[in-house]
Each structure stands twice: as structure tokens, then as C-alpha cells.
């Protein structure tokens, strides 16, 4: 070894000496062109890995069993009734008598209309799949649920919709105006959908991209404006949930002077 041969010397002779030559070349002074090149050579691949490769590895993309168009179903002409948009939603996504929320409706709700597998209402391929494979077979549709919650979490829809006066879109966005279902991207480690995706430390909100599903195109829609009565008078807020993570819930509770609902046991079980 080079170093061994120098071991007996009293003092090293500085950087030009061959001893530690390799080590020397790895410690470059700053602000030199070579130094910057080294920085970039590390930074660029790291960013590509972090922003492109890692998300691709972490998330698996899955298609829903078949496409579902909310636009078609919220059309008042087809018999789904409701004065307001809210009531239209709640025609299928309703509350049970004990106040619990039905979530994604089961087959019994669908078959209120689609009761005859031989009789499609439209001409789409998706409806055909639905009728032939599920209605005729009497099987539930295995929807991939974007809003699946961890088992330790409790959420009361009725408290927010009926008591809190929120509209569906204020949290779920313009889901009711979507024609296609977004690709379901599942975190391979946690098993949760990417749609439940919070903000980073800087508070930068990672929205679902509007192009992805034709959703959220009406950002400034009036339905996102909410006026509440406070001690200081009326206050209007522009609210739109992007992720439905714990911090978003807490932020909204704080804005709306409902801090008591940030207590742990309100959402955890």
C-alpha cells in the first residue's frame, strides 16, 4: 500500500503528496466548476429516483372492475331525484336510520334500477360488464375504495353533513361531475390509495391532478365557499380538502372554530 510506505515519515508533505491522493481528490474546494459538476452528478440522479422512480416503485396502479360515470347517474332525467346536488348524491350514498353512512352503495341500491340483467339503460361496454358479470350473477362489485380508512380511524359523515352543513363536494371535490373513475393507485407498503395523500412539511398541497379524471375542473365553484357565524361576525372561507389526512381535518376544525373536535378520541378508536 502507498500509505504504508509513508508511515515512517515524520510529517506528511501536503496535498500534492501521493499519500491519500485518492482521498484528496474526493474533497474538492467549493465554487469550482468541477465541484459543481460533482454536486449535480449526485443531485440529478437523486431527484430522478426520488420524484420518478420511487413513486413508480411504491404505488401500484389498478383499474376498477369497470368504469362508472357519476355524470350519467346524477342526470335528473333518469329518475334519480334531488332538489340540490347534495340530495342527488344522497340518493345512493344515504344515511341509515341509526345515523351511519352507507358509503359506496351495495348491489341492493344498484338493483333498485338495474334490476333486469337483460335490459341495459345505455349502450356502454361498462354497463354490459356490470349487468352480465355482477347483476346476473348476483355478486357485489369489488370496487377499489379510494377513501379506505385505517382500522384505527372513526369518521362520522352525519356529523359533518347534517350537523356541520358541509356539502359532499367540499371534501370529495367534484366527484359527482366525473365521467370516469381515476386510476386506483395503491401504496404497496401501506395498502392505502394515493388519493389520501397529505401535505409535505412546507404545507404544499399535493392535489390530485385535474387532468387525471376530469375532476376538480371548477376550482372556484361557489360550493367551496363556506360562510360561518363567529363572534367577530360572518366569515367566509374557501375550503377544499385535498387529502383528508389528519392534519387537513384538524386544519378545517380549527378554521371553523371546532377545536374541541381535534381531541384524539373524536377520530381515533
Amino acid at each position: 500500500m502507498e500509505n504504508q510506505s509513508n508511515a515512517s515519515e515524520k510529517r506528511p508533505q501536503g496535498g500534492s503528496n501521493e499519500s491519500g491522493g485518492l482521498l484528496n481528490s474526493t474533497f474538492l474546494p467549493p465554487f469550482s466548476l468541477k465541484g459543481w459538476l460533482f454536486v449535480l452528478a449526485g443531485l440529478v440522479p437523486a431527484l430522478i429516483v426520488g420524484w420518478v422512480v420511487f413513486p413508480m416503485v411504491l404505488y401500484s396502479s389498478q383499474q376498477q372492475p369497470f368504469n362508472f360515470s357519476h355524470v350519467v347517474h346524477t342526470n335528473p332525467d333518469i329518475g334519480i331525484e334531488g332538489e340540490t346536488e347534495q340530495e342527488l348524491c344522497m340518493y345512493c350514498h344515504y344515511f341509515r336510520e341509526d345515523g351511519t353512512f352507507v358509503g359506496i352503495p351495495g348491489m341492493d341500491t344498484c338493483t333498485m334500477c338495474h334490476d333486469d340483467p337483460e335490459f341495459p339503460y345505455g349502450q356502454t361496454e361498462d354497463e354490459k360488464i356490470f349487468l352480465e358479470q355482477y347483476v346476473a350473477e348476483g355478486k357485489e362489485v369489488p370496487w377499489l375504495v379510494y377513501s379506505d380508512q385505517p382500522e384505527c380511524v372513526y369518521f362520522s359523515h352525519i356529523a359533518h353533513v347534517k350537523m356541520g352543513g358541509l356539502t359532499c363536494g367540499q371534501c370529495h371535490g367534484d366527484h359527482g361531475r366525473s365521467e370516469t373513475l381515476p386510476v386506483y393507485k395503491e401504496n404497496r407498503l401501506t395498502g392505502y390509495s394515493i388519493d389520501i395523500w397529505g401535505r409535505n412539511i412546507a404545507g404544499y398541497s399535493k392535489n390530485i391532478k385535474p387532468a387525471e379524471a376530469g375532476m376538480y375542473e371548477t376550482e372556484d365553484d361557489e360550493q367551496y365557499l363556506r360562510t360561518i357565524e363567529t363572534e367577530q361576525g360572518e366569515e367566509t372561507y374557501h375550503i377544499k380538502m385535498s387529502s383528508m389526512k389528519m392534519d387537513d381535518c384538524a386544519e378545517c376544525h380549527t378554521i371553523h372554530h371546532q377545536e374541541q373536535n381535534n381531541a384524539c378520541f373524536v377520530c381515533h378508536k
Binding site: 344515511f95 341509515r96 336510520e97 341509526d98 345515523g99 351511519t100 362520522s156 352525519i158 356529523a159 347534517k162 350537523m163
Partner: peptide, 8 residues
């Protein structure tokens, strides 16, 4: 559970 019932 009781609260949800009451809200309903």
C-alpha cells in the same frame, strides 16, 4: 354511536 343516532 349514540351521537350518530341523535344526529339522525
Amino acid at each position: 354511536r349514540a351521537k350518530e343516532q341523535a344526529y339522525a
